[in-house]
Design a protein around this nucleic acid. Structure first.
Lengths: 166, 166
DNA sequence: CCCTTATCATTGCGTCTGCAACCATTGTTT
DNA sequence: AAACAATGGTTGCAGACGCAATGATAAGGG
């Protein structure tokens, strides 16, 4: 309580809470994904995005934007998934610079197998302690924040969306 | 829209929104911290925690828990900070296994110098688009989630807290 | 049409991270 | 008090990431 009372700034508190929650959550989820399926959380996010995309495929650069990774990081991630057999690189017919990452049948099966367990984990670690009103508030606020920090994402979007707060 | 409509599960939507927001936010903040001060976001969190702790110091294991890092990761992070001169390792008098990480005067000066700019960034990227009610809702919800995923943190806590939603 | 600029993906390199193994110290059991 | 278990920290190792440089293709301007 000398100089720098800025340490108690409410914005800092809120941000700290946000990061702490995120880190705790991903720690739990990562451990469980790793233990149950030998898969990192990032990898899972990649597969999930592909599963939700039209024709189960996405250009590498778009995928990178959606999961907030660098182009190089994603390229290597796709390398690993390709070795695993869950994703295949497919040439883009209209632009020879671009490459699609496409979910294979095995990849899709993998996601389908993972999902129920993952949803249980989410329920336990994340949505469990929140009632319906909390979840609605959180969704509304996160949408606003997401649109602000990542306006690009709106186009291909998290998905369906337009699920307006109502 | 075949099998696996689980892809549209609202829990998954909410989690996706949460991670996307987090990643976007840290991407922005990291870039700015790196550009303005040559410091990673993790490193900044470490210094911040120390600055807020009694006597500006914390045992390595407690610090690791607070910033959600492994013991090894944190040990090396402290190595780097020690080289930089912002943190010093101090032997714990009551338990010879433990080591304190203590903020040096230079470290404290560094934090004081960083903070105003960082708060501006937070305002721009994070709290800006939220009105007072949103911020209150978000804080309430995050506290509940944080306590759920990281119950340990409550003791030494993010800090002051008891700032009840009111 | 050619030349310049921008975009997409990949690779070399350095850095950060976690896991597991390890050593030192503390607490506990008998 | 001796043996055993638990805790705190550090280090070897390998995995994953981002940045910058590179090569290929596409788009625009004169």
């Amino acid at each position: 309580m000398d100089r720098s009372d800025a340490l108690d700034d409410p914005r800092l508190t809120l941000a700290g809470l946000f990061f702490e929650t995120h880190d705790g959550l991903t720690a739990h989820l990562s451990r469980r994904l790793e233990a149950d399926f030998g898969m990192s959380h990032q990898t899972f996010e990649v597969l999930l995005r592909l599963a939700r995309s039209p024709d189960q495929r996405l250009r590498l650069s778009d995928l990178a934007a959606q999961v907030t990774m660098s182009a190089s990081g994603l390229s290597r991630a796709v390398d690993r998934l390709e070795l695993e057999g869950t994703v295949a690189r497919v040439a883009c017919p209209t632009d020879r610079r671009s490459v699609y990452a496409a979910l294979t049948d095995e990849g899709r099966a993998r996601v389908d197998a993972l999902l129920p367990t993952h949803l249980e984990h989410l329920e336990e670690e994340f949505t469990g302690p929140l009632d319906a009103a909390d979840r609605a508030d959180l969704e509304r606020i996160l949408r606003r924040l997401r649109d602000h920090v990542n306006p690009e994402a709106v186009r291909a979007s998290t998905f369906a969306d337009d699920a307006v707060p109502r």
